[in-house]
Structures are given as structure tokens and as C-alpha cells.
């Protein structure tokens, strides 16, 4: 549905994005993850025709976003980070305008406006001036605008930024409900959001694609070392020293030392499951094994690893 090849955009000397390539299948929800100023907005603006790329190609629904821009734009619903509203209009008149602007047939305009207001739950505020709406409502009007011409592709730039927790949950549910046939690209710098909504993630950092995969695979791929949480009833120092001496164990950290039980975090070498060795060492020393479990790496850590400059400091 969306193909992006070697997209590059320079602002003067500064490269906002460099050689960004990815593809999105029909019906997929792709998460665009990266810190601020990573190039997410620039990429989205190129896809929607708001900016021209310096070089590279991008196509939406088979239409090149530069040479066949109008055809591509007809198929895209776009919610910019800065919601493009007119304060002097009501949601209803604004959406009627957006519908006409995007080529919705005159006879269908009012019907579509009612439908999207229903879908985004703003019907009860249809006649309130937009300047009087709360941030959450403004965001929903923006989303309604993106949906008005029933586009195949939705591009949402930081749709939950600046909202309070309740509003965030609502908008997320709304977006989740929009999936299905639609192809969605969603940018965010909030990790739980992509984990919750997206089937695939593109991590972008300093204008380049740093990683691209499903959330699970990304976690798998990035697990450089095995990490195991162990609770042992026994003397803290001795337990730590004995376990650290085992083959395959890289490091043993004491997380919490209680009255008799020590909680430890054991780093094992890659492809070297040390759990059995740990268990038998503990038992043979006469200590009590209370708990042992593999600690999965959260996307948060992956993200930090991917986007921090110091790679490979895990050991």
C-alpha cells in the first residue's frame, strides 16, 4: 500500500531524513517510533505531499507522491501533529468544508459528516465553536477530518500528544477500531502506544531507519544476553560470588537483600542457558531456591539501546 525508497530530505545543509526505506502492506498498522526531531514528521509530510523530498521515491496506493500527488492525496487521511483547525468554525461546518475540499460528493457530504462525528464521538459538540473545544475534542475533530473522505491510508502524526490519560485511552481505542481494511501509519515517541496498536514498528533515529520489525521480533533480536531474576534464601555475598563464578554467567547483581532472602539479577551469555546450572549450584550449596524467571526486555529498553549512541555496552 505504501512504498518508500531511499527517501532523503535536506533542509539546507541539514539532513532531516536520509535514505529512509520501508513498505507497508494493506491493512497493516505501522508504528513510527523515534525521539523528537528524528525525522518522523518530515517523512509523513513527504508522504502526504506537504513537503517535497530532496531525493528518493515514495508511493501511496501505487501513486507517486510527487508526480501523481493529487491522486495519492485523495487516498490519504492525514492528521498532522499540529491539528489543522479553523477556530472560527464549528466542528460540523469545518467537517463539511473538509469533505467538499477532499472531493466528497455534494449529496454525500452531510451523511459523511454525521458518520465521522459519530465514529469520533463529537456529535454532542457539533455546534460548539472550535476555539472553545478542549484539546481532546480538537484532536477528535482532527481525526474526523482525516476520515471524512473514507481514505485507504491514514497517516497520524503523534495523535495522542498533549492529551490527558483518559483522552489518550479513548483516542487509542478509536484508532484501534479504525484498523481492519485501512492501512495506518502512526508516529509516536510513546512506547506502550506502539506495543498496543501496531503490528510492526519502524524505529527512526537521526533521520535513519534504525530497526524495523514486529514488537516481539524486535525484542528477540535485541536480546543480546539472557537475563534471569533469582530469589535465593542464603548469605548474600557468598551466593553472589558462587553464582558469578559459574560458566556462562557474565554478571550477578543484587537487586534487594532481605533478612534471609536475596533477590538477584543474573546476566547470562547469549545462546547459553544458565538456568539449570544456577539451580543446581544453589541446591548443592544448601540454599533455598525461591524463584527463578527469565526477565524479558521491554520495548522501552530496546528503544533506548537502539537510539543511544553507546551500542554494545550490555556486558
Amino acid at each position: 500500500m505504501i512504498q518508500v525508497e531511499n527517501l532523503t530530505k535536506y533542509y539546507g545543509e541539514y539532513a532531516a531524513i536520509e535514505n529512509v526505506s520501508f513498505a507497508v502492506e494493506k491493512g497493516e498498522i505501522l508504528g513510527f517510533l523515534g525521539p523528537n526531531a528524528a525525522g518522523k514528521t518530515t517523512t509523513m509530510r513527504i508522504l502526504t505531499g506537504f513537503l517535497q523530498p530532496t531525493s528518493g521515491k515514495a508511493a501511496v496506493a501505487g501513486f507517486d507522491v510527487v508526480s501523481e500527488s493529487l491522486e495519492a492525496r485523495k487516498r490519504i487521511g492525514y492528521l498532522p501533529e499540529n491539528v489543522p483547525l479553523y477556530d472560527d468554525m464549528t466542528p460540523r461546518s469545518y467537517l463539511q468544508y473538509a469533505a467538499r475540499l477532499k472531493g466528497v460528493e455534494s449529496r454525500q457530504v452531510n451523511k459523511r459528516v454525521e458518520e465521522v462525528m459519530e465514529a469520533t464521538r463529537i456529535t454532542d459538540h457539533a455546534e460548539v465553536l472550535i476555539s472553545k473545544l478542549s484539546k481532546g475534542y480538537r484532536q477528535r475533530v482532527g481525526l474526523a477530518q482525516a476520515l471524512i473522505h473514507n481514505p485507504d491510508v491514514l497517516i497520524l502524526d503523534e495523535p495522542t500528544v498533549g492529551l490527558d490519560p483518559n483522552q489518550i485511552v479513548e483516542i487509542r481505542q478509536l484508532i484501534k477500531g479504525l484498523g481492519g481494511d485501512r492501512t495506518i501509519i502512526l508516529s509516536t515517541h510513546i512506547l506502550p502506544e506502539v506495543e498496543m496498536l501496531c503490528g510492526r514498528i519502524v524505529i527512526i533515529h537521526e533521520g535513519k531507519v534504525a530497526a524495523m520489525d514486529t514488537p516481539d521480533n524486535l525484542a528477540l533480536r535485541l536480546r543480546r544476553a539472557q537475563q534471569i531474576g533469582v530469589h535465593v534464601r542464603g548469605p548474600e555475598r557468598e551466593v553472589q560470588a558462587k553464582l558469578a563464578a559459574l560458566p556462562g554467567v557474565l554478571r550477578v547483581q543484587v537487586v534487594r537483600a532481605g533478612d534471609s532472602v536475596v533477590e538477584l539479577l543474573v546476566d547470562g551469555e547469549e545462546k547459553h542457558d544458565v538456568r539449570e546450572a544456577l539451580a543446581s549450584a544453589i541446591v548443592s550449596n544448601g540454599w533455598g531456591l525461591r524463584h527463578m524467571a527469565e526477565v524479558g526486555m521491554s520495548l522501552e529498553e530496546i528503544f533506548r539501546q537502539l537510539t543511544s549512541e553507546e551500542k554494545g555496552v550490555a556486558a
Binding site: F50, L70, I76, P80, N82, Q145
Partner: peptide
């Protein structure tokens, strides 16, 4: 200034 130009310029109009 307000950013509403983004709606206008990403709509299918020249």
C-alpha cells in the same frame, strides 16, 4: 501560522 495550511495543501487540490 496556525498550521491549518497543512489541511489545505494535503487535500487533493492544486
Amino acid at each position: 501560522r496556525s498550521g491549518s495550511i497543512e489541511l489545505l495543501m494535503t487535500a487533493p487540490v492544486t
